[in-house]
């Protein structure tokens, strides 16, 4: 697995095909590419057409591709997912936008009981190539239901694939890969990372959709996260560096399935693992990784695997979100604990 430091733009900036873009624009270009490449691709969601989505991720796409392919749907999540399933049965490749993480639940039955299970129910006779885009997570100071991290609910459901990019480059490429997948893909977009710019290499080839990746090499502690939390880990790595502790940072990228190869390799080297996430810790993605790494790297571990997570409370009112959401200091608190063993 190649080692890339996404916070260092100089590695790729020399190539003219590389642009500095915010993730929202990278996603927009990835969607546009998919729409242009395959006439069966269509986008569906609330306010995604004329408005371009509440986060403007689909801005301009309806004007470019028409209202039949960038569809402003009625305001009903079950209806969006359910009709996307019917379109997929007809050979289309719908990409649904759920406006905010906390609004996905009216569509939960269609996702878990229908979308996830239909290929299996049909004995493999047909595929369900549907992507569900979910802007997720905190750090945007929003009201209730607008800052949640529900990825574990979907990772628990067989039949779904679950991914989350952390950089504009991954966002551009992973979106296209997700749309090409013949399986349903839950695509969790870290909305707090929509606007910081990063390099997008249009000449590059995508890393496999479900590959995890070492994004900073270190020796003392492996720290791992997906989506927005990866940038928090990079901050923690800088702090740790100043304190003489070397963190190896892994970007999970795929939550289901999880690519354990680089994770186990890293833990075998460092002997210590801290997993971080915005979601509550109880029965979470971090819990699953902690259990699996304990099985697969037991003799390498110098300390228990620690989880740094949101508290097991509802997401708090926005004035308390910085207390709820793990920051670099909370990561370092766990790093200090695993180093103390």
């Amino acid at each position: 697995m190649t080692t890339v430091n996404p916070s260092n733009p100089t590695t790729a900036a020399a190539a003219p095909e590389v642009q500095e873009l915010p993730m929202a624009k990278a996603l927009n270009l990835g969607l546009a590419k998919a729409l242009a490449d395959d006439p069966k691709v269509l986008l569906m969601g609330e306010d995604i057409g004329r408005l371009g989505g509440v986060f403007r991720v689909t801005e301009g796409l309806q004007a470019q591709f028409g209202a039949d392919r960038v569809v402003d749907t009625p305001l009903a999540e079950s209806g969006i997912i359910g009709t996307a399933i019917g379109l997929a049965m007809r050979g289309y490749r719908p990409v649904c936008e759920i406006q905010f993480d906390g609004f996905i639940w009216p569509g939960f039955d269609q996702i878990t009981s229908q979308l996830a299970k239909l290929t299996n129910r049909g004995g493999g006779a047909f595929s369900m190539p549907v992507v569900i885009r979910v802007p997720y997570g905190g750090h945007i100071g929003a009201v209730e239901h607008h800052q949640e991290s529900p990825e574990a609910y979907f990772a628990h459901t067989a039949g779904l694939r679950v991914v989350s990019p952390s950089t504009p480059n991954d966002a551009y490429w992973m979106m296209q890969e997700a749309i090409r997948s013949n399986d349903p893909v839950m695509f969790f977009e870290p909305k707090s990372r929509y606007w910081p710019k990063g390099p997008v290499d249009f000449t590059g080839s995508a890393a496999p959709l479900h590959a995890s990746r070492v994004v900073r090499v270190g020796t003392d502690v492996t720290v791992l996260a997906h989506g927005a939390m990866v940038s928090v880990l990079m901050q923690a790595a800088e702090i740790a560096d100043a304190e003489g502790i070397s963190l190896e940072v892994i970007d999970l990228r795929s939550i289901s399935p999880i690519d354990y190869g680089p994770i186990v390799d890293s833990v075998t080297k460092t002997g210590r693992l801290v997993v971080a996430q915005e979601a509550s810790g109880f029965v979470s993605v971090g819990s699953e990784i902690a259990a699996t790494v304990a099985e697969r790297a037991f003799y390498s571990l110098q300390a228990p695997v620690l989880r740094v997570a949101g508290f097991d409370t509802p997401f708090p009112p926005a004035k308390l979100e910085t207390v709820f959401l793990p920051d670099a200091d909370r990561v370092m608190e766990a790093v200090d604990r695993v180093m103390a063993y």
Binding site: G82, T83, G86, L87, M89, R90, Q114
Partner: peptide, 17 residues
């Protein structure tokens, strides 16, 4: 009732076809 939405989406596909 869940298949009523699949039927609707399928019909949306027929329209596009």
């Amino acid at each position: 009732g869940s298949h009523s939405l699949h039927a609707t989406g399928y019909a949306m596909g027929l329209q596009r076809d």
